[in-house]
Amino acid sequence: MAKPFSFKLPEEAHDPEPPPFLGTWNVVYAAVLGWLLVLILVFAAFTRYFSRFYL
């Protein structure tokens, strides 16, 4: 019997086909999330720069 609150990635989610670049999907996902982090930092710097300049 399954555990009442078990949580795991289903088998169907695993795909053997590799991405066309960066080797594995996990690296591709990390690159996308890294891009998001860069965007947030750039937007924060953008906001901070213009606020600081005039205060």
Binding site: F43, F46, Y49, F50, S51, Y54
Partner: peptide, 10 residues
Amino acid sequence: AGAVGKLNAI
């Protein structure tokens, strides 16, 4: 634009 907060993105 930045001086009146129009570029406050975050």
